[in-house]
Design a protein around this nucleic acid. Structure first.
Lengths: 128, 128
DNA sequence: CAGGGCAGGGATAATTTTTTCCCTGTCCCG
DNA sequence: CGGGACAGGGAAAAAATTATCCCTGCCCTG
């Protein structure tokens, strides 16, 4: 693990939530697990675009946070499945809220971004 | 502005939402503005811990996304106030949900993190 | 035995974000 | 005029995150 040089402020609820869900692929991973795509190799297949190494790192972070946990079957060969902890379950509706807000406003935001770049933003005050 | 080398995937609502709210200090800034701390210098005072330069960068990003806009009063000396756009307003309940989830679970998460580090995590399977 | 799926991680690089430092102006007050 | 509040940004660094490459083992199948 990487040793932080600047301490985090995890006393604020928002900071904690963003920390947990804010990783680049965390939400996607959680969505996989929620849908039952729970084995590492399955998740890797599902997320072709993302390097397996990184998915593992994110999985570990989610595990450290207590959002998911690992079930290791004493089979041969050993099988691993990730599952949501209760707190992980409680995160799902939050993700849904984010997802829904994003879907509702993503066009606006992307358009605004483009307009801002070209100076056409509706909120840009004219300098007269 | 920094020129991205890897394109973003902003078709997913969740990615957009995280992008908007995920910056290190964005939510804090939005909270300031929501509470009426709307002038740059006032925000800087409120967020002593954070360098003014960064706050400005975040403000610009929020502005580009169309979450806030700048009102420049033609006074002398020029006065600036940031305000939430309608879409920015619509983000507030989302932030509240995040904040509330975080506050409810931050102790668990911090504890779990510590336990995980010391091998005491309730979800850690024992290797027998 | 050769090859492949599976779980996992070290070392290192690339990219992105955050931070620091310091500069430009304008204005007001004393 | 000197000092300070105000709005803003360039340049470069440090820090953090994400990405790439390649390795270890175990097992199974052919």
């Amino acid at each position: 693990m990487y040793q932080r040089k600047i301490p985090e402020m995890l006393d604020c609820g928002l900071a904690v939530a963003v920390k947990v869900i804010g990783g680049k692929w965390k939400a996607w991973i959680l969505d996989c697990i929620r849908r039952g795509v729970s084995r590492p190799s399955a998740i890797h297949r599902e997320m072709q675009a993302v390097n397996a190494r990184i998915i593992n790192l994110h999985l570990k972070e989610l595990e450290e946070a207590g959002i998911i946990y690992k079930e290791i079957f004493a089979e041969v060969p050993a099988r691993v499945e990730y599952r949501l902890t209760p707190v992980g379950e409680s995160l799902l509706p939050v993700i849904d809220v984010l997802e829904q807000w994003g879907n509702t406003h993503k066009d606006y935001i992307n358009r605004n971004h483009a307009d801002y770049a070209s100076g056409n933003c509706q909120f840009l005050q004219q300098s007269n």
